[in-house]
Amino acid sequence: MSLTVENLSVAYRSRRGDITAVDSVSFRLADGEIMGLAGESGSGKSTIGNALIYMDPRMKLAGGKALLDGKELPLSDNDAMRKLRMTEVSLVPQYAMSALPPTRRIGKIIADLLKSHGIKDRDEVLSELLRRLELIGLKDEILRRYAFELSGGMRQRVTIIMSSLLNPSLLIADEVTSALDVSTQRAVGEMLIEFRDRGYIKSAIAITHDLSILAQIADSITIMYAGRLAEKASTAAITEAPLHPYTQALIASLPEVGVRHEDTTLTGIPGRPPSLVNPPSGCRFRERCPFAFEKCTETPPFAEIRPGHQVACWKVSQEHGGGARVTVPAGAIADSASTKGTGK
């Protein structure tokens, strides 16, 4: 196992008290696995990514732990974590367009990072760097350029190369494709796969709200909802046969090629995710879920329904655990639609 996350809870400090953005999350990442982590804004997906590499002063570890290659990551110890960043855990940030410092050449920035990590044999890293630049079709003169001289796609690729230069075990790619056009998106996605195949990175978490890009690059997909995991399964299982009502609704809301939406209305999910300031008890999707029943006032376990397929849903575990089929209360959707506006 490359990465094991156990009951990880992360909170943001605020004046109204701590807000638990990630609530008891557990998952595993196999060697060589690219895991897609999807969910809507505020679901906590980026918070998981940040917690695994850099807890900023507003964040705090509220419980749980993460093990990378069997060793526990010192998540709240900034100094200890600093040495592991880039070498063991690395990040391609959401803000790749503005991530590169503007007043230094790319080569100088990389040299400063290597110096920070006390790397003695810089020539070797440098020749590796040149090899990787060539691999993705960038000229080595890029190292003598400044960030503002590069196009958006080039900046994105440069940050991926920089972040993965020291062969980290885990690369967290946070919304790496969101700001790019579709063809560049594909190229960047393929770059991640190529880097994994060549062993530059051992495993990766691709955080995004874009399920279609995950379908292309991810081995498995984890769906988050309001700070908790809803479902984790292989990419095929999530896209073809999702079990969690939220995942189903999410997949159903994607437009399909060949379907004329004049004929079939493209539906969204009625309602809004609950506020995390004072989250409701039980299943957090309850209010919007057409299948909700009494049991849903208790928090559902993130249970393994089939090998490699975990779902946090009472209805699904009853159905697959031999329980009786749950009848859907009539008008559930209309009810949940009327709760609109209970969130922030």
Partner: peptide, 19 residues
């Protein structure tokens, strides 16, 4: 953003301040 990125890549605080 650029300071955050340097920090996420484990640059020493001294280096980040210099930038």
């Amino acid at each position: 953003d650029s300071s955050r990125y340097l920090r996420a890549l484990g640059a020493r605080e001294r280096v980040i301040r210099r930038y």
